[in-house]
Design a protein around this nucleic acid. Sequence first.
DNA 1: TAGATTGTTAATCGATTAACAATC
DNA 2: TAGATTGTTAATCGATTAACAATC
Lengths: 217, 217
Amino acid sequence: MEKMRSNISMAVIRRLPKYYRYLNDLVEKGVTRISSMEFGRILGFTASQIRQDLNCFGGFGQQGYGYNVEELRDEIANILGLNKTNNAIIVGAGNLGQAIANYSGFRGSGFILKGMFDINPRLVGISIRDIKIMDIDEMSEFIKKADINVGIICTPKEGAQEVADRLTGERIKAIWNFAPTDLDVPEDVIVENVHLSESLMVLAYLMNQRENAEDNK
Amino acid sequence: MEKMRSNISMAVIRRLPKYYRYLNDLVEKGVTRISSMEFGRILGFTASQIRQDLNCFGGFGQQGYGYNVEELRDEIANILGLNKTNNAIIVGAGNLGQAIANYSGFRGSGFILKGMFDINPRLVGISIRDIKIMDIDEMSEFIKKADINVGIICTPKEGAQEVADRLTGERIKAIWNFAPTDLDVPEDVIVENVHLSESLMVLAYLMNQRENAEDNK
DNA sequence: TAGATTGTTAATCGATTAACAATC
DNA sequence: TAGATTGTTAATCGATTAACAATC
């Protein structure tokens, strides 16, 4: 990486995975070079935005040519840290936890699922994709033993903060939170929320708006 | 609703569910009134932002008093359209589809799951929470018969666009998309994406950044 | 070399924050 | 009435877009 500004805005960061996804598609299609203008057309972004975004991390293009698709893809993978591996556990092995355990997207992001935990004795002992569900009381020891640095919380909202406390107590670095609540964690712990209910409410809002707009026609 | 601007920014809209969630918590705790300053402290927003946001939809507060918690909660529920019901189907009844089918958050958002569809004959016939999984060829007829207006796509990315085409062909109003791809739909169809892989990559990025920052200490 | 397209600076636009008069 | 706090306008900040010199 040629240069590396430290304060990249989250707006830019949240666009990176989309760049990565589309670059992968282009590589698969055999496209070798692309201009910011053409890439913008595909993504629905302005060419300006793409050039600004990429230049937060370095000059990956070449004047008069554009960007080498495969090279840019690999650069972004590197920026996203997809080449680094992170060991993860899922806490809460209900329906959602099990679905996440089966989630094939782990592969491509460098995350490796090492264990699952639950308080429900009926789930403890079951295996999902060769990952055994353990009792939550074994969690602290397991985190140390298996060098876990990511916790994925798939519990109901009631248990989520306590789980987060236990995870951060074991010096876990990041939490991927599916519980419908905001977690209170030490400032050096990263939390990425997936709030399904909020996404669904936004959908409800947009549908409701659309309907109201039609009524006023 | 006293007034109703038509062009509310998505930034505001995506904060509404969070307001709603915290107001619900406050109602449960028995808090009857709250000032924008105190509410901001709880949410981590500025008081200014809260007042600006709420005033997009109307003057729900009272000078010298603040906001009535329960009243404001109900107003926001109304703005979000949570009182309206929407009939939904899930397309793709694998692990994620089944987890979503079991998702309890439907209740509170006015969405009612009416059916599930898959192409896998081994899944067709199975019931999840009293919802039978049907063959995808029965989908079009079912949408008409059961008055479905929301499709939830839980297929792999390969099948997603074709499913979207079929759904929009049946005049569905909105799609909640879990497939890791962007859908091409008519402009009057609402799409709300839940891109798990993008969320996970952002987490990877933040962990990677944190690590690099520590190395430079 | 001429044409194309980047990297980067400047201009614009939109969102957030601050300030304060209105008013409960 | 005096104090509190809103609703709303103005100021600031940040993100996006436009423009263009640099350069492949």
